[in-house]
């Protein structure tokens, strides 16, 4: 009698264990999503919203973990060292895979250490000034800069970031000089702008909401096409400048992710960004939606590397890329 009971219990216990291992299919446990920036920022907020949608689609938890630092490189370095089993992914930008490694040596190989999964939006950048500024157009500002060399200073969210490099391109193409004052993020730069401590700022997406609330005035959008949220603001393209730099918000996995798992993730993301909530959020954060699956994203990254390298060499910022891509 005693033994029968024990046998029954152990069989029942077994019964609970077997199904989980036999019917296992990806994803069978929570997926960790490393986020390359701190909580509350646009990358973080978008990643969290998207991960909630993914949870509905894949029926599995996606756990966000913030790993800020080094402009996003700390997160990517961590990702590069993880197993490519599809249970660890990262939310970051494309800048961590071209602009930044070209300028300083990173521990990961930008084009070899990762499997790009999906890119969902492009981050706009703009040149803004405070609302009662004497400059009404970009041209006025550049003319001032030419007549008064060394007097024009622009604030920017970090040295070597996309807006910063864009400003230097304009500098080179217009034939004058302005001085970069790096701050810790676009938010700080915009704050300094509002206090009139700098005359102009080159900012990431945050400037849009400030423009709409009347706190700053946008002189130009660093893009070729106008932003849908700011239809009256001219672009640098229209004004004759060639500023081809783009930054996309994207998700990555470590290199070597099996094709079947990659496909599952890719489709999940593609579906997630079509949801109402995500679309609204992309709008609210003033980003331009894109739809780049893994192969298109990889193609973009491959193409962008030599282009970015050339731009940075032409600007005199580097002599050669600090990291080799593979």
């Amino acid at each position: 009698m005693k033994y029968f009971k024990t046998l029954l219990c152990s069989l029942l216990a077994f019964a609970f264990f077997i199904p989980t291992s036999v019917l296992a299919e990806y994803p069978e446990k929570p997926i960790s999503m490393y986020i390359a920036f701190g909580a509350g920022g646009s990358t973080d907020s978008m990643a969290r919203i998207i991960s909630k949608e993914i949870k509905k689609i894949l029926k599995q938890q996606v756990v966000p973990i913030n790993l800020p630092g080094g402009g996003g490189t700390v997160c990517m370095t961590r990702l590069a060292g993880e197993k490519a089993d599809g249970y660890v992914i990262a939310a970051a930008l494309t800048a961590q895979l071209n602009r930044i490694p070209i300028q300083r040596k990173t521990a990961y190989k930008p084009l070899a250490s990762f499997t790009p999964i999906y890119a969902y939006a492009a981050a706009p950048a703009g040149i803004v000034t405070y609302k009662d500024s004497r400059f009404n157009t970009l041209k006025e500002m550049i003319d001032f800069g030419k007549k008064n060399p060394g007097k024009l200073k622009y604030g920017v969210g970090g040295a070597g970031t996309t807006p910063d490099v864009s400003m230097r391109l304009i500098e080179m193409q217009a034939g004058f000089n302005w001085i970069s004052i790096p701050f810790k993020g676009s938010m700080e730069a915009l704050t300094a702008l509002m206090g009139k401590h700098v005359d102009v700022v080159a900012s990431g997406p945050k400037f849009v909401s400030m423009h709409l609330s009347g706190q700053v005035r946008t002189l130009a959008v660093l893009n070729d096409e106008r932003l849908s949220s700011l239809p009256d603001v001219p672009t640098t393209g229209e004004q004759g400048f060639n500023v081809p730099l783009k930054t996309y918000f994207a998700f990555y996995a470590p290199a070597g992710l099996p094709a079947d798992r990659l496909a599952i993730l890719e489709n999940a993301f593609a579906e997630a960004v079509k949801s109402q909530k995500v679309k609204e959020a992309i709008d609210k954060f003033a980003m331009a939606p894109v739809d780049m699956n893994s192969s298109r994203l990889s193609q973009y990254l491959e193409k962008a590397w030599p282009e970015e390298e050339q731009i940075l060499k032409d600007l005199g910022i580097i002599k050669k890329a600090a990291t080799s891509p593979r």
């Binding site: 701190g38 909580a39 509350g40 920022g41 646009s42 973080d44 907020s45 969290r48 919203i49 938010m187 915009l190 704050t191 509002m194 909401s209 400030m210 709409l212 609330s213 009347g214 706190q215 609204e280 959020a281 609210k284 954060f285």
Partner: peptide, 26 residues
């Protein structure tokens, strides 16, 4: 002003933004 004063207010600002409300004079 829509400018977070420290890390925690930055996180809370994220909550504002996700709900579609942009803190600031508007």
């Amino acid at each position: 002003l829509g400018i977070p004063g420290d890390i925690i207010t930055a996180i809370i600002m994220g909550a504002f933004m996700i709900q579609g409300l942009i803190p600031g004079p508007m």
